[in-house]
């Protein structure tokens, strides 16, 4: 037994960085990166992809702490209340900092004022996919089938209140008749139902739908980015098909409000440098994400605009807790 444990001790170390000379003051200790989701999700994955090279560049270890709960707001609140010394960071994202502020009326932080937003890591579009046997390959066909059927079309998503759900709401408004939103607990079960043909359509984020699109188990109907996505050039955007719907999921790096500007800029520089490497570019392209290029000020502005953009959509969706 002691042997068992001893061996795993060798393994259970965090992301160790080589010993590099570092600047005075910051970073002086291990950096805690809070991921407000359970391990295994897209946010968790992105955090791990970026934290490893970041730890090497900053010369300190970065440990990932998963603090899931309440649409990513529990972990976000913990970071908002932490000391702004640059040693506690957060994977900010569309749920906690874009949609959440409108979705949870008694949220205990301000998505803009209570954080120092540092860098946008990635944006990824959502995609409407259909079971190949459903015979829906374009929004025109979707609209026609939606009007023709007596009960309307069903569309699955990974859950109520997600950006994918909001796109279903926007599409329903554009067609003048609500699409039957069928929420699931996570993208996996929803995708299973679509592949099995129990639900004909799904609104999913591209990273989780990518492998199923490549394998042909589902077909792409429309992409929610402004331009066609380089990894899936055959799937037209909503705009091309006559509906002005654009909405992308995003993840970024943020810290508590009041972080020193020098530290914020330092991290922003390093993150952008990491995202610009060929290796990361290739990795992101495969997953269907676009690496971020914003400065810290631009990212702060980005978050502010997201909060404003989603507020009316969330109200229209009826996904209003309490």
């Amino acid at each position: 037994m002691s042997n068992v444990v001893a061996r795993r001790g060798v393994l259970a170390t965090s992301v160790f960085a080589p010993h590099v000379l570092r600047a005075q003051g910051w970073p002086s200790q291990t950096i805690r990166l809070v991921v407000p989701y359970a391990p295994g999700g897209t946010t968790d994955l992105m955090a791990r992809l970026v934290s490893q090279p970041l730890a090497e560049r900053l010369g300190v270890a970065i440990t990932i702490e998963n603090r899931p709960g309440a649409g990513a707001t529990v972990g976000s609140l913990a970071v908002a209340q932490a000391a702004p010394d640059g040693h506690t960071l957060l994977m900010s994202n569309i749920a906690s900092h874009g949609i959440g502020p409108s979705l949870y009326p008694n949220i205990r932080y301000d998505a803009v004022r209570d954080f120092s937003h540092i860098a946008l890591i990635t944006e990824n579009p959502s995609v409407f996919v259909a079971n190949p046997r459903a015979g829906i390959t374009s929004l025109a066909e979707l609209a026609q089938r939606h009007r023709a059927s007596s009960g309307g079309l069903d569309m699955a998503t990974s859950g109520a209140g997600s950006s994918n759900h909001m796109l279903v709401v926007l599409m329903g408004r554009a067609l003048g008749r609500d699409i039957n939103h069928i929420p699931f607990r996570g993208a996996g079960p929803a995708m299973t139902a679509v592949i099995a043909g129990q639900v004909p359509l799904m609104s999913d984020s591209l990273p989780s739908a990518a492998s199923h699109l490549r394998a042909g188990s589902v077909v792409g109907v429309a992409m929610s980015s402004a331009q066609r996505h380089p990894a899936f050039p055959a799937i037209p955007t909503f705009r091309e098909q006559g509906h002005d719907i654009v909405g992308t999921g995003w993840f970024g790096l943020s810290g508590p409000a009041g972080m020193a500007a020098s530290v914020v800029d330092h991290i922003n520089r390093e993150v952008r440098a990491i995202l610009a490497t060929a290796e990361q570019q290739a990795r992101f392209a495969e997953l269907g994400g676009t690496p971020g290029r914003l400065s810290a000020a631009e990212y702060t502005d980005y978050v502010r605009r997201e909060v404003e953009y989603w507020a009316p959509v969330v109200r229209a969706s009826g996904a209003q807790p309490d």
């Binding site: 899931p68 709960g69 309440a70 649409g71 707001t73 529990v74 609140l77 979705l103 008694n106 205990r108 859950g159 109520a160 209140g161 929420p183 699931f184 607990r185 009826g318 996904a319 209003q320 807790p321 309490d322």
Partner: peptide, 20 residues
């Protein structure tokens, strides 16, 4: 916890930890 269908909070008494 959070109702999967509507995202509404049920019996959580405003405690964020209970929302899951």
């Amino acid at each position: 916890g959070t109702d999967v269908q509507t995202g509404q909070q049920r019996f959580t008494f405003g405690i964020p930890e209970l929302s899951d």
